[in-house]
Amino acid sequence: MLKFIGKRFLQGILVLLGIYAVTFFLVAATPGSPFSSERAISPEILAQIEAFYGYDKPASERFITSLGNILHGDFGPSAVYANRTVTEIIAESFPVSLKLGSISLGVALLLGIPAGVLAAVKKNTWLDYVPMSAAMAGICLPTFVMGPLLALVFGLIFAVLPVAGWFGPEFVILPAATLGLYYAAYFARLTRGGMLEMLNQDWVRTARAKGVPERTIVWKHCLKGGLIPAITFLGPALAGIISGSFVVETIFQVPGLGQWFVKGALNRDDFLILGLTVLFAALIVLMNLLVDIAQVALNPRLKYD
């Protein structure tokens, strides 16, 4: 078990390193530098700025330096927001995004999984059709459609919830709902599929023949196996919630990492992009590690190796 975790952990580190390298050289290969767009400055000053940020050295040398810096928690300066470092930006915005992201994921799981179980158990009744139609509608309403719609309805027409900013608990509701509902739809569909597969197995018949009540069949005999598809989707779901946060934080003006990433991408803020990419990738790699462990824990036929 420990060996398995260690092995996967090392693998994750390698993947992260790969991602960082690809990102770094992709950004480095981009023509010009982050500062060339500001036309007002003279070539000499530009050269000075570039030297200050280390852009006068070859990319491979910068790669090694930046890698060393990152290991010390230093993600470099922001190229656009001149007197701030990327580390500062992350320290300030990460808690916001963490809160939004974990509440969204919670909404997705707590809504999606029970709905999926219920739909599978009550297959072909309205308790199946209604939530599953809602889930299908949810999947077809991406965050950037759902967000404005929710804002329009609850923020402007009924005017019960704030639509912009981040000043108190009520500001979390709409962004978290926008992100969470979309993935709740996915989890509901996956859970329904997984549960249906379990409920159709021969061993369910064996359990019934033993006089086991239906409720016990669902919770004790089928839930473990039925949850595996949903658990497997946690990794992609986290990746999706992160990229969804780019949209949602922009729509609802939440001062989180997602908004910074979009700003960084639009303004070619190299260090910001790099730092955030590494951070996001690390989160996703970590989630995938947890998913791997959970899968083995749920399925006795898999072994830690």
């Binding site: 197995q201 021969d202 061993w203 064996t206 023949a209 005999h221 196996g225 399925n299 006795p300």
Partner: peptide, 14 residues
Amino acid sequence: SMIFQDPMTSLNPY
């Protein structure tokens, strides 16, 4: 009580 045909699928693997 009942015994089923296929012992490979009649026991719950979980």
